[in-house]
Design a protein around this nucleic acid. Structure first.
Lengths: 203, 203
DNA sequence: TTAAAAACATACTAATTAGTATGTTTTTAT
DNA sequence: ATAAAAACATACTAATTAGTATGTTTTTAA
């Protein structure tokens, strides 16, 4: 089943995308359920008629926002900086460093939009949960595959449970994004150091 | 500055505590900002007059809920199961195991109330953030002290950065509570295994 | 060019929100 | 026992919420 490309004028597509992008920015900073449609249309300079023409309700917009703005954006941040070295330890550490320290999009006090949305919505909206799970699965697979590659090339211990390790690394990421909200960016540094120690035990 | 005990009839204190406890339950499952005062008083069987007699507004109630219900409850779950062994690896692992696998209060799909509240409110309410930070600091100190103790008794490597390690462990906890919302309780097990491996590198 | 469909605009609605005004009842101290 | 304060109850309000009804304008296809 290929994604059904809905026919739409360029202008209409721009309106729609504008709504999704502005909504994403607001949801990142305020949470999904506490971001109102009125707020979104106010910052978007789009009327309510236009909003509900493009989306039959708020949740449909939210799902589109996840799939069309958050997921592509996060893919770039998560999986993008993963594939240059052939040493998993270096590679994964570099990814996490880039993600936590270098990416200019993230605001420490607001954490990670994907982590936030899992926290807020996973138990309240199945469609959201499923979309967020897919993103997590992609990241998980990228990390696990990287480790498996390292196992065959002899850079990672053969008895490493790549999947388990991948989840452990992901949990650390989500957790430090959370702690960062109260302890600030400094806490990222210590986390990266300990991550490095942990990764080196996989050699 | 000792906590000022406000004089109150036993009945009034019960009403107040009842509000705080019911509010905590609702906030745990639905989030703070999406739990309405009307919802709280409905499940509490208390009228709006009583609610706003005891708390001048919702946020004051929320802060009291954190300090008087969540913090004491979490202290029991976090620090309680920490102090029996003298081996930090065993001790910390046992704490995390009890916290993730044995504590009957937590519902996997709703995660951890303290983690949730940091996620939702840290950037929106300074009083909340400060109260949540204190709780985190307590847990952090308990873990770090446990490690330091292990260093003097020779059970932990002397070059271990106890504070950094403590934050790393805490991040892992918050992160797996988050991932657990989409991957379920099974994911806790793998996390505990990897935590054990990590802890053993501190020996 | 023109009819039809797509895209948007305006003005509404009913429900829900936190909070208040103004009571009544219950408890406490004398 | 009684006055005063504490504790609660009821009925409201103004703002905000998602969503709708009913338009007008713009784009597209014949």
């Amino acid at each position: 089943m290929q994604p059904n490309q809905i026919i739409m004028s360029a202008k209409a597509a721009a309106t729609r995308l504008n709504i999704l992008q502005k909504a994403f920015g607001l949801v990142y900073q305020n949470g999904y359920r506490t971001t109102s449609v009125d707020e979104i249309i106010a910052t978007t300079q789009v009327t309510k008629g236009a909003f509900f023409y493009h989306f039959k309700n708020k949740d449909e917009m939210g799902l589109a926002m996840i799939n069309e703005v958050m997921v592509p954006g996060m893919q770039g941040a998560l999986i993008g900086p993963l594939s240059d070295s052939d040493d998993p330890v270096t590679e994964i550490y570099a990814m996490m460093h880039s993600l936590l320290m270098e990416n200019p999009f993230f605001i420490v006090k607001y954490g990670c939009p994907a982590v936030n949305l899992v926290e807020e919505m996973a138990s309240h909206n199945e469609a959201f949960q499923s979309a967020l799970m897919k993103l997590n699965n992609q990241w998980h697979e990228a990390i696990a595959t990287c480790l498996e590659k390292g196992k065959t090339s002899g850079k990672i211990k053969k008895d490493t449970d790549s999947k388990q390790v991948a989840y452990f690394i992901m949990a650390g990421y989500g957790g430090i994004r959370n702690l960062g909200k109260i302890y600030g960016k400094e806490s990222y540094k210590g986390h990266l150091e300990q991550l490095k120690f942990y990764l080196e035990t996989l050699i």
